[in-house]
Design a protein around this nucleic acid. Sequence first.
DNA 1: TTGAAAGCGCTAACAC
DNA 2: GTGTTAGCGCTTTCAA
Lengths: 351, 351
Amino acid sequence: MKEDKEITIYDLAKHLKISAATVSRSLKDHPGISKSTKKKVQEAAKEMGYRSNNFARNLRKQKTNTIGVIVPKLNSYFVSSAIAGMEKIANENGYNLIISQSLESVKKEIANTITMFNSRVDGLLVSLAYDTENMEHFDVFFDKNIPVVFFDRVYEDSRSLNVIIDNYRNAYDITKHLVDEGCQRIMHIAGNLTRNVYAERCRGYKDALRDAGVEFQDELLIVNELSEEAGKELGKKILQMQNKPDAVFVANDVCAANCMQIIKTAGYSIPGDIAFAGFNNDPISKIVEPHLTTVNYPCYEMGEMAMRNLIDHLTGDGSISTTNKIILRSEIVVRASSLKGKGNNQGLHIA
Amino acid sequence: MKEDKEITIYDLAKHLKISAATVSRSLKDHPGISKSTKKKVQEAAKEMGYRSNNFARNLRKQKTNTIGVIVPKLNSYFVSSAIAGMEKIANENGYNLIISQSLESVKKEIANTITMFNSRVDGLLVSLAYDTENMEHFDVFFDKNIPVVFFDRVYEDSRSLNVIIDNYRNAYDITKHLVDEGCQRIMHIAGNLTRNVYAERCRGYKDALRDAGVEFQDELLIVNELSEEAGKELGKKILQMQNKPDAVFVANDVCAANCMQIIKTAGYSIPGDIAFAGFNNDPISKIVEPHLTTVNYPCYEMGEMAMRNLIDHLTGDGSISTTNKIILRSEIVVRASSLKGKGNNQGLHIA
DNA sequence: TTGAAAGCGCTAACAC
DNA sequence: GTGTTAGCGCTTTCAA
């Protein structure tokens, strides 16, 4: 029970008058050590307050049991949910998580990548920063065959696994839904179009318009940061438009909800004057009034899935080289913000 | 540029025909190594693709440059914001973060504590699980003088630093504000009362009532999980009360907002029939209608502050034994949900 | 079934 | 300014 100085396997060995090797093997439940010796060692370990030293172990084994996670920003509904899912799986499998945020800057993302690399993570889970355009900083991982799994904001690369949802399909469905509700001037608010998620959503939006015979208009496509503030700005901008849209499809709920507030405060009715749709199914979407039509994004499950696959790969149960892309089920959730009352909701799930 | 085998300082040493010690010192920018040697080493390191090995370093230095963080649940506005603040400071100071969640269960909290201990974290940051009542699992840290900083949900102990807000004062102010608005039957929804945060808020509520000459009534105090679902349950419960409250002060915004929805949907006016107040200044509080009166909780700053103090302690710049408690500024934010229109807002900040 | 010994990569006390 | 040397605590051949 003494806790003053760190107990090592040598202390145990000396105490029990056996070798350190035997202690090590007993502790690991190595076959080929007699039951009685194992028991003796394990008891002594407990009694003397022995704690295994991970560094010595890692140094020796060249393996860390640690997974690195790099996200754009920790404090968002999507990211915190995804990380919660990851932590659960990692924890269940005896892996530690080291987490860092790029704060949406490539520069910091690169720095974090290096830190992770030096920390010798066994694998890496990444959702890219807003402005990352070049992937060279992951090459060191690929070169060393350290598995990298991208989720949500991904990079198409044969050397890594991507875990995503069908952004294109969901955006297509939402846009089609708005058209079906009678909207013709549908605005789309996207994030940086070099990021897959926003590019795909935008493509879905455009294709749905095309298929519905609605002409795409450049002035109805806006790119912003999708933040609270951006939502408010957007609201003001819409109020200033002489030829207002009759629907707004925003690539995330936070931005949509904040925009709605401005529009409502100015006296416009939603969805009467302008219908709204968002993306993510953030809790905020069920609080804002009218409740926001959105896409139910399985954040937590995505975190679980990404981590599970990474660990399976690490333990040899699966291979990232065989699976290259995992697409999670997600679907649109129609709520009042987009229902113009034509009773025409195409059998979609109403929540 | 070769990435096949790990380059060590010995490889560099051999390549440059100097000793490993000199390489090590050059890399650390040790004073007492000639500029030219340093430069030579650093260039060679870059060229040969050298990466420092943290395990060897940690093993040698008996220090990990890693901080452990244990939180109840990663996916909440408060926690994710706090962690974002922590990560920022840790990152700036060259520390890694390993994060785990107790999922509100002591049992998992204890397991996580052990993992952190075995991972030899330099320090620990903890916000306690919902049902933690016994602190023995932190004794190993105290015994080894590994600093533990509690934040938000804390444990009063002379051996650790607590970073908190003045929950009592804020709750007192909110309750007084409700009384000033003319409310007399003020309900309070608390979390587990063995947790300091909820106990203090409850105490503030009771004292404010007492000071205002309003009698405390047991039936108006409810303890629940403060979740979305709990908010909805609460709403239903209130609807069933024959003698309804004229105000509801909930210990968190998520629960409050969800409760409000139910109440509103049933046709009651807020704040006309029932005023509402929450706690945290969650983004949801500015979206729900009417906007929710709440307490502006500096989540991000709390994370920064907790981490900064822990690191200062680690580097000897400050001492946890001298500072035992840090109370961050927080204040109530009055919004429409509690303004009964008596124009009596006591000079409080209106947002 | 166990032990001896080497070494993972790095740092720091001590030399010179 | 730089080199020598001895570990940090553990795992794992190889040998017995």
